[in-house]
Design a protein around this nucleic acid. Structure first.
Length: 664
DNA sequence: TTTAGGG
DNA sequence: CCCTAAA
């Protein structure tokens, strides 16, 4: 604490010295929040001079840190810092700082805030530059220049100079002073980001200092890399040592006893990467060395680099009260929530080491429910199924009987049958009605039943092809699709059906109602490959769930929809292009597009394997469409837009639409 | 509700 | 195709 006091004194003295300079308070911004504590630190002499506070007064500085923490936090919460950093250009931070040094008592408050702000700006700029350099180094592609970047470029021709400037400047007393500001603001995860893998001696020293001096006011201690200097082989460490190292790395205790876990966490922290696939770790000067490396692709390089980068960021951030903008822009993928939610829930937070760097992909929690459901249905057989179907039941029919699979209707237990029958698609065929709740394709279920008991269903099958197909495809879905919503139940049915009857039946029935010729994807085949009345063979038929094969026209609609609205606007596309296709949901479109992408690129790279994998019965996707898909994908991935590609790219010169006719 | 992703 | 989480 003595040191802190000294620092504060120095600050005040500086004010004192530069007192004579004129102030231009015009630069004051709304973010400048007066800090009342400052008043206690200076006195105004008769001539108006500011004099340092006495020792007793200085003691109060300690409180100020608390105040500042709050203040800085509030700044972060309102997002003002972002605005500040990105919008305001700072022609000369230093000059500004000097100019704005206080003159009178009234200005004093402003002075402090001014300095802080100036520093914020300065650091913001620096961080921008750091980031910029990062981008330059990581990729040849020039980074997108934000307004701030332009400003920076204008004033600083050489970024490296500024980088070094950061280093030189930061270890001064300011950084010391404000490290304590930073600490509580950054939560654990962000600290990890910043701290992990500091290879610089200075950073280590700073950390040590700040760790000791600021610990009084900070709940969580700072990492101490001095402990992990030199070469460390994690494998040789005991659990206790590993915990020690963990603490040195992440700046917090852990009670985890699992060696491997600890090693992995430490390694992750030091490399700032979750790509730790080895079991043996050696750490040398904070850089992870892999002795058993599975992925050798310049891991060391990247590790080292990120370490250095993070160190710079960290040093910079020490001087910056809050750094949301910079953090976010640095692809460190620190979410806003994290930065704005400083409460540190310790332990287990390190889990985030991994997720936080996973890039821009949306992060998902594990879906335990799905897992539970699956395992349950697997193990508990019928009981599990009943439960899950109950969960999905819209009607809320709680009676177990109501949930009995339709097959039971024709099975041994007639009494368990659902008493209700629905008219199916106006065909006059009565179908057993189960819980209407899933968006499933009823006809499969229905058909399979039909096939199993043609006699029971009477007339049907023959007529089906002509009549039912149309009805179902055009108007069913809403009623029919709800027919059997529970997949588990449906599966169950099918399995039972299969076990009792010929496996092909379902398959045959399934394709009856296809209004158009069905093509088959190149990739996502497995499901619909055999829609073929004449060759009802394969084993796949047994396993298939309700599946509506995509027709070529559908695919084309989809592709054009994507071309028009862009991939991702599935609901739009669905509304416009698939309005009449009630059985295609936006999710289906999305899935299909995903498959199309895969197909198109697969074809581009090697079409042989694909060709081999393709079964003879299936019709491949027309090349022009795949091409179009690929182009759309490229276009959307940031490439240069391709104009009316479909017209020119067809192998045969036909447009996609024309090509289509050949398949209908 | 819609979108993105995993299974 | 299904399911779920995130937005």
């Amino acid at each position: 604490m003595e040191k802190l006091a000294e620092v504060e004194l120095n600050e005040e003295q500086r004010i004192d010295e530069s007192f004579d300079s004129n102030i231009s308070s015009s630069t004051s911004s709304p973010k400048q929040i007066a800090n009342p504590v400052v008043y206690k630190l200076v006195r105004v002499e008769g001539d108006g001079r500011l004099v340092p506070a006495t020792d007793d007064e200085v003691m109060e500085v300690e409180n100020m840190f608390e105040e500042k923490k709050v203040e800085a936090r509030s700044i972060a919460d309102t997002g003002q810092v972002e605005v500040h950093i990105s919008d305001e250009e700072s022609p000369s931070v230093e000059a500004k700082t000097e100019d704005s040094e206080g003159k009178s008592q009234g200005e004093d408050t402003k002075v402090d805030a001014e300095k802080l702000n100036a520093r914020l700006e300065y650091i913001g700029v620096m961080l921008q530059q750091v980031k910029q350099e990062e981008n330059l180094r990581l990729s040849k592609v020039p980074p997108k220049h934000s307004s701030t970047h332009k400003t920076v470029d204008g004033q600083c021709s050489d970024q490296r100079e500024n980088l070094s400037a950061v280093k030189e400047k930061l270890p001064t007393n300011h950084s010391l002073q404000e490290t304590s500001l930073l600490t509580p603001i950054l939560d654990d995860s962000s600290k990890k980001q910043l701290v992990s893998g500091g290879t610089c001696v200075k950073s280590t020293e700073d950390l040590a200092v700040s760790g000791s001096s600021a610990s009084a006011s900070c709940s969580s201690s700072m990492p101490d890399f001095s402990r992990i200097k030199g070469e460390i082989c994690l494998d040789n460490q005991t659990v206790r040592e590993l915990q020690e190292t963990f603490r040195a790395t992440f700046g917090r205790e852990t009670t985890v006893k699992d060696k491997l876990w600890l090693k992995r966490r430490i390694a992750m922290g030091l490399t700032n990467s979750c790509d730790i696939s080895t079991t043996t770790f050696i750490i040398k000067d904070n850089v992870l060395v892999r002795t058993i490396a599975k992925d050798t692709h310049s891991t060391m390089e990247s590790c080292k680099y990120t370490s250095q980068f993070n160190e710079v960021v960290y040093n910079s951030c020490k001087d910056l009260a809050t750094i949301p903008t910079v953090q976010i822009e640095n692809q460190q993928v620190l979410s806003y929530k994290r930065l704005r939610k400083p409460e540190a829930d310790n332990e287990c937070k390190s889990e985030d080491v991994c997720t936080e760097q996973s890039g821009s992909k949306r992060v998902r929690k594990p879906t335990r429910r799905y897992i539970e459901e699956l395992s349950e249905s697997d193990t508990k057989e019928c009981a599990g199924r009943c439960e899950s179907s109950a969960k999905h039941s819209v009607h809320g029919q709680s009676s177990p009987k109501s949930r009995i699979s339709p097959v039971c209707v024709f099975g041994t237990d007639e009494t368990a049958l659902i008493p209700r029958y629905d008219s199916f698609g106006g065909s006059g065929v009565q179908v057993p009605h189960v819980s209407r709740m899933r968006r499933g394709r009823p006809r499969e279920n229905f058909m399979s039943i039909m096939q199993c008991h043609p006699s029971g269903m009477g007339m049907a099958v023959g007529v089906e092809k002509n009549v039912l197909g149309v009805h179902i495809s055009e108007q069913d879905s809403e009623t029919g699709d709800r027919n059997c919503k529970d997949r588990a139940t449906l599966k169950h049915n099918q399995e039972q059906v299969v076990s009792k009857t010929e496996p092909e039946k379902e398959n045959v029935a399934k394709c009856i109602d296809e209004p158009e010729t069905v093509y088959f994807d190149n990739i996502d085949s497995g499901d619909n490959s055999e829609c073929n009345l004449t060759s009802p063979t394969s084993k796949y038929s047994v396993r298939r769930k309700h599946h509506r094969a995509w027709t070529l026209s559908e695919v084309i609609k989809l592709v054009e929809g994507v071309a028009k609205y862009g991939a991702g606007r599935w609901s739009e596309i669905k509304k416009v292009a698939f309005a009449s296709y009630t059985y295609r949901t936006s999710v289906d479109l999305k899935d299909k597009w995903r498959n199309l992408l895969r197909a198109s690129f697969a074809q581009g790279s090697n079409d042989k394997g694909m060709r081999n994998s393709r079964k003879h019965g299936s019709m491949p996707l027309p090349a022009p469409i795949l091409l179009r898909v690929r182009q759309l994908a490229e276009k959307h991935s940031g490439g240069t837009p391709v104009l009316s590609s479909s017209k020119f790219t067809g192998c045969s010169g036909r447009s996609v639409l024309e090509t289509r006719s050949g398949y209908l």
